[in-house]
Simulated scan of single mutants.
Amino acid sequence: MSLLHIPFLADLATIRRDIHAYPELAFNELRTADLVARELASCGLRAHRGLARTGVIATLSKGSSCRSIGLRADMDALPLEEKNDFSHRSTSDGLMHACGHDGHTTMLLGAARYMAENVAELDFDGTVHFIFQPAEESEGGAAVMIADGLFEQFPMDAVFGLHNWPGIPVGEMAVMPGPVMAGTCAFEIWVHGHGCHAAMPHQGVDTLVVSSQLVLALQTVVARNLHPCESAVVSVTQMHGGEAWNIIPDDAVLRGTIRSFNAATQALVEGAVERLCSGIASAFGAQISVRFDHRYPPTVNSVAESEICRRVARELLGPDKLRVDELPSMGAEDFAYMLLEKPGCYVWLGNGPGSGGCTLHNPHYDFNDEILPLGVSYWVKLVQAVLGARSDDGRG
């Protein structure tokens, strides 16, 4: 490996564990934002605050080039009760950092500090914006930052993101052009029948039988409507109806998600869901309505920026540690909104085996501090690769 010498690694581990101990949900990352701003100020960087309420951005420039890029980390935690017992476990009931955003924030802080303290020796000509984003988990903080003027106030030619990835060994990185994370759409299906006594079902239209048929039928949407080489997932995650043991209820509701990698597939799936709802309603004499709530779009890496990231990963970790053919994830990521506006690349940095509960959104998860220097080194070397005074990537 060709890692940077980072003399303040112990400080970074302390910061990461402090953030972990005090998790905050979307748009409420007040303590975390204060910590980020304070750390940036300590190395001479001014923190701009206010975008998306709790967002923090710092800028570092060198030379005369007008080229600029953004590096983004997310700050928010999850509404999940932590089941770890180490000393830096969550101090807030029902909240924890179970996705590694504490580590992402810390690695970007480390990169900002390293670059600020060594700016004279670093080979880059241009501007780098360090973006600390709130509300990645389900609330679309990236879209809010953009709406609040992120790219107008901080012009940038490209934007880059990073996520720790349990299941990929420490010291390895996955970089893929094209779709890397799925888009997600929530759906809600209301089933209206005719309530009646459970002993006299012939007098009603059984909403729960209708709903059960619909749950099973929805599993055919992907298998029998998409080309076998296309990808999508339809999952029913909630089914609610009825309050008494001896009453067939009037109404029931189903909720779930659709995940896909492009708009055409999403439209095809939605059309199939609507046809099933209409057909089953007709077959049983019920009324069924469906509502789609489009959440995050697919996260799609641009080819040129992905190649730059691959080059950096090869030089940093070694050519045998770069994964170029990982399957995309059906998980969603709001960095997608930034990639709709600017070219860029979102990479996965190995967090370790991913066994024993150390998987994302698991109550036993903890970010692996062993990868802090890898993340810091990657960010710094990426800046030099994209904005290097002798860069040969065609952007100079």
Rank of each mutant, 00 (worst) to 15 (best):
A58S: 13
L360I: 13
S355C: 04
M145L: 07
L387S: 01
G195I: 01
D34N: 13
S92D: 11
E172R: 15
V180G: 09
N246I: 09
A77R: 08
L339D: 02
L372E: 00
N301F: 03
A385V: 10
E315F: 03
R323T: 08
P79E: 13
E29T: 07
A244I: 06
V180D: 11
A13E: 15
D250E: 15
A13K: 15
A267Y: 11
L109D: 01
P155G: 06
G285A: 06
L268Q: 15
I15L: 13
E370H: 09
S138Q: 12
A385Q: 10
N118H: 12
P169Y: 11
C43Y: 04
S87G: 11
E39P: 01
L349N: 03
H20E: 10
S306Q: 06
D325C: 04
S61Y: 02
P7A: 13
L78R: 07
K83Y: 09
M330P: 00
H197M: 02
P23C: 06
R310N: 03
T59V: 12
T237H: 06
G161I: 08
D74W: 08
E24K: 05
V144A: 04
L60H: 01
H194L: 13
M176V: 15
M173W: 11
A120S: 14
I189F: 02
S235Q: 08
A267Q: 15
S329A: 12
I248V: 14
G256N: 11
Y365Q: 03
L382A: 11
E333C: 01
Q238E: 15
A47H: 08
A174Y: 12
H227S: 15
N164Y: 08
A98T: 02
G70H: 00
A52D: 11
L387W: 04
C309R: 00
G195E: 07
P353G: 10
H104N: 02
F27G: 07
D76Y: 07
G256Q: 09
P249Q: 12
A389W: 01
A58F: 07
P7R: 07
L35E: 04
L162F: 10
Y22L: 12
H240Q: 14
F124P: 00
V233N: 05
